[in-house]
Design a protein around this nucleic acid. Structure first.
Lengths: 144, 144
DNA sequence: TATATTTATCTCGAATTCGAGATATCTAAA
DNA sequence: TTTAGATATCTCGAATTCGAGATAAATATA
């Protein structure tokens, strides 16, 4: 593969790697009865605190109507509650329940280890460069 | 962000970039009435020739039952036909129709240009390293 | 103040993807 | 040859995601 088709090769490699990683996450979450989106929401709330539905959608790149569905699921499993915003009555926060917090505190360290595994064949120095480059690519794509 | 959480940062950056790129592709294909999966199938057939349903699924990482659905859609649009395999009667090939070939021959050069745009902020040398690293990461994830 | 616009969430129906199981065919082993 | 297991495709129902539109609330403008 020479330079001519480098961007297309980069595209393929990038998208396939993402799919494989997402598959790892999907399998890791299955025993907990979570899909990757539900996990992403729990992780967001755990690390960033209560978040408006709207903001969750922006952070994990999912439409607001889809977030409503995911939060419904998590509420049904008693991992999340909806909390009305006092200042702006249009806004509803999603908030971890004690059960939700306990679950994500169990899952997250395992997830972190697994991701260290995924990236273990790439040196720290290499990974730093990769992050820089992929950031540029992501920003560019976002702006298009 | 120091090294402690580098793998998690890499994960986020990688998955988000992929989502943004896929969104670019989705929007680019919309005027042609194709979704990204349908485009991926047409592109595969265009570059690799007729392919068994099964193989298409492996190449674009989609379940065989989903490929059946996608190929049905493309057959309905008259871009693809099913061709029985003479040697192995279990196998059905998907094959581009003249209309399908004409369409992908129109779309593909535009797609290529767009992807060059996506990656234009990263030098060729940089991109070579990125491809190497992401390949390693993808292989690792695939093996887990 | 009254009206128009924007924003946040939700409802609803459609599209896409999946997994489990069915069917037909092929291959290997007894 | 017959049987058992493997393989390729498809059917079906469920899960997930989306976009369009509805509703309520906040904000900006006349």
């Amino acid at each position: 593969m020479i330079n001519e088709n480098q961007p297309l090769q980069a595209l393929t490699v990038l998208l396939r790697a993402s799919q494989h990683i997402q598959e790892v996450i999907r399998k890791d979450m299955m025993p907990y009865g979570l899909n990757p989106t539900e996990f992403a929401v729990l992780e967001l709330l755990y690390h960033k605190g209560d978040q408006p539905i709207q903001v969750i959608g922006q952070k994990i790149l999912i439409a607001s109507s889809s977030i409503t569905y995911v939060v419904d699921k998590l509420v049904g499993k008693n991992y999340v509650t909806r909390v009305a915003c006092a200042e702006d009555k249009r806004v509803t926060y999603a908030s971890l329940t004690p059960e939700g917090r306990a679950l994500i505190m169990t899952i997250f360290p395992e997830h972190k280890k697994r991701m260290e595994e995924v990236f273990e064949d790439v040196s720290l120095n290499e990974l730093t460069h990769v992050i820089d480059s992929i950031k540029k690519i992501g920003y560019k794509a976002q702006s298009m």
